[in-house]
């Protein structure tokens, strides 16, 4: 028997609005349909992954009190709070068997004990055969504070805009791979790849079906499973799997 395949752990970062959630949600569903056990983590404090996964927008969160402040040691996860058990207990179910955990909305829901426990789950959840996919907050802040470090593959999603180019440049120190999204023509793709010196894992076309799915609050994979963008994300999923092994 060969060694177990390396776990696929992916984080999505971007400028905001470039398509992290749409792509991350679709990737989770497609991985699950290929037989992967998937844990989807919505780390964005303006959460949106649930909708892209095709579930009600009220996501499942960890309760407060799973971490506490210890004299001289700062915040610590309480004894017995094992990542796998926390996932079993608190993660919601999405279609195709995807499990989903959400950090929570700002302001209000993200108190320190929840943040500490959530990060603990991200970094310590190691169940053989499971894939982790995280959708981070827009911009550079979370990524710069190590919220993508759990992942082996840190995908920066770039669209053809100048603002996206600017943010993508700022994210270069943490990102490992590039996905070009909302690609309208060959020159869009050239502009993105010229601006970003990272390995390209996928080029997803601009697809009106995704915009329409968003208007209706549906997951793209449920609304338009055969649309060009969904076909392109299948290719992205294949490359992600290859890249992880």
């Amino acid at each position: 028997m060969g060694a177990a395949p390396a776990a696929l752990k992916v984080a999505f970062v971007d400028k905001g609005g470039a398509g992290k959630s749409a792509l991350a949600g679709t990737v989770c569903r497609q991985l699950a349909r290929r037989g992967h056990r998937v844990l989807a983590l919505d780390v964005d404090t303006m959460p949106g992954l649930a909708v892209s996964l095709g579930m009600p927008p009220e996501g499942a969160r960890l309760p407060a009190g799973l971490a506490e402040r210890v004299e001289g040691k700062g915040w610590q996860v309480v004894k017995g709070a094992r990542p796998a058990q926390l996932v079993d207990r608190y993660a919601a179910w999405a279609a195709d068997g995807v499990r989903v955990l959400e950090l929570g909305k700002l302001p209000g829901q993200v108190e320190p004990s929840v943040t500490v426990a959530f990060r603990h789950v991200m970094e310590r959840f190691r169940r053989p055969g499971w894939t982790l996919v995280a959708d981070l907050a827009a911009g550079t802040r979370q990524a710069m504070f190590g919220w993508a470090h759990f992942a082996r593959i840190i995908v920066v999603v770039a669209d053809p805009s100048a603002k996206s180019a600017l943010t993508t440049r700022r994210l270069l120190p943490v990102a490992t791979h590039l996905v070009a999204n909302k690609v309208g023509c060959a020159s869009d793709l050239e502009a993105i790849t010229a601006a970003v010196p990272l390995q390209l894992l996928g080029a997803i076309p601009y697809d009106e079906a995704l915009a329409e799915a968003e208007r209706r609050g549906l997951a793209p994979i449920d609304f338009a499973p055969d649309s060009p963008a969904m076909i392109a994300t299948e290719e992205l999923v294949s490359r992600l799997i290859r890249e992880a092994s």
Partner: peptide, 19 residues
């Protein structure tokens, strides 16, 4: 006031000046 500032692009001062 954005931690990832890019208002310069929408105002028209260009990518380099924004950065």
């Amino acid at each position: 006031c954005d931690a990832n500032p890019n208002l310069g692009i929408s105002l028209g001062v260009g990518l380099d000046m924004t950065e």
